[in-house]
Each structure stands twice: as C-alpha cells, then as structure tokens.
C-alpha cells in the first residue's frame, strides 16, 4: 500500500475490497448439508472432532438461506434431483457447490443400470469442486473445501464479468 504505510495507528488495516471480501467469504464456508447416502457419514465425520471442519470456518447449516456452499454428498435420485435444484435456487448469492463422491459426480455404481439415478449432479446445478471417492475420506472433503477457498480468493467481486 506504499504511500499509506505507517500513516495510521495500529488498529487500522488497509487492504483492497476484493481481498477483504474474499477473505471473509473463504473463511466462512457455511455448508448446506445434503447428506443423501453413505457420503453423508464421511461428511459428518469431517465435521466432527477429529477432522473438525470448523477450524476453516465451515459449519453445517440446515437451511439453504443461511448457507454459502452446498455439499451434495451422495446418490442423487431423479426424485431428489428436483429438490436439489429447488434448494440450490433458494440459496443466496454468492453460492458454491461441492459434488462429493462418485454418485454425485457421475452416477457412480448406478452408471449403467440405475434407472432412478441422476448421472452427475452437474446436469442440474453448476458444480465448483468435484471430490472423487466412494465414499471420499474426510481428508478428501477437507481438500475439496481448501480448493474451494483458493477459488474464492481469486475472485474479483467488483470487476465486470467478462462476457
């Protein structure tokens, strides 16, 4: 910040708005828990004491209105898919989606004969991070959240979106 350095008292901090907003967003990944299958067990495990997602500011919310990130953890059946889409639309901007596990990524074991399974949640909502695994270990979900933090920090909130 060049010319402004050392001009103020210690309790004043100078930064760019982009950095401030990105810092606050990436430090509070409140996630909408979408436990649909066995991946939900790993997600719970990631949130519990041993892996403790809350040290990254990620805490589970039960309402889409309070959430920033939707973690789709599990098999998305066609019946559930309509609900997933509606709940995604109810989330406030900015919003992100993590697709957790093989089922949410591509249909997983239901790829061939799953008449009732959506072959990848990216068919109905835009996905930011794919976490592979069947189910992914909590460490994998943690890495997914860290990658999402990286993605958030590179955003330009006030810049015009490129057409």
């Amino acid at each position: 910040m060049g010319a402004l350095n050392n001009k103020f008292n210690d309790n004043i901090l100078i930064t760019s708005l982009d950095k401030l907003l990105n810092w606050s967003r990436s430090g509070s990944e409140w996630y909408f828990q979408f436990g649909l299958a066995c991946c939900a067990i790993e997600m719970m495990s990631a949130a519990a004491a041993r892996h403790d997602l809350e040290r990254f500011g990620a805490m589970p919310r039960s309402s889409p209105r309070q959430a920033d990130v939707m973690i789709v953890a599990g098999t998305v059946s066609l019946k559930m898919a309509t609900r997933v889409k509606r709940l995604y639309e109810q989330m406030a901007e900015p919003k992100y989606v993590i697709s957790m596990g093989s089922c949410a990524n591509s249909g997983g074991p239901y790829w061939q004969h799953g008449y009732h399974v959506l072959k990848g949640v990216d068919q109905i909502v835009p996905v930011d991070i794919y976490v592979p695994g069947c189910p992914p270990r909590p460490e994998a979900l943690l890495e997914g959240l860290i990658h999402l933090q990286k993605k958030m920090r590179e955003e330009h909130v006030l810049a015009k979106k490129e057409a």
Partner: peptide, 27 residues
C-alpha cells in the same frame, strides 16, 4: 417413485425412458 413416473421398473421387461422431466436417465 414420483407420481408421474411411467412404467414399473422392477418388471423384467422394463425399459428405462430416455428422459425424466428433462433429465437424461441413460448417460
């Protein structure tokens, strides 16, 4: 299944539809 689902999927002669409410079933 949903009320508007067509067919009975555990019958041996069941053939899945191509789309359900605009979502592709077979990839």
């Amino acid at each position: 299944l949903e009320e508007d689902w067509e067919g009975y999927p555990l019958r041996k002669d069941y053939v899945p539809a191509e789309f359900y409410r605009g979502m592709r079933i077979e990839k």
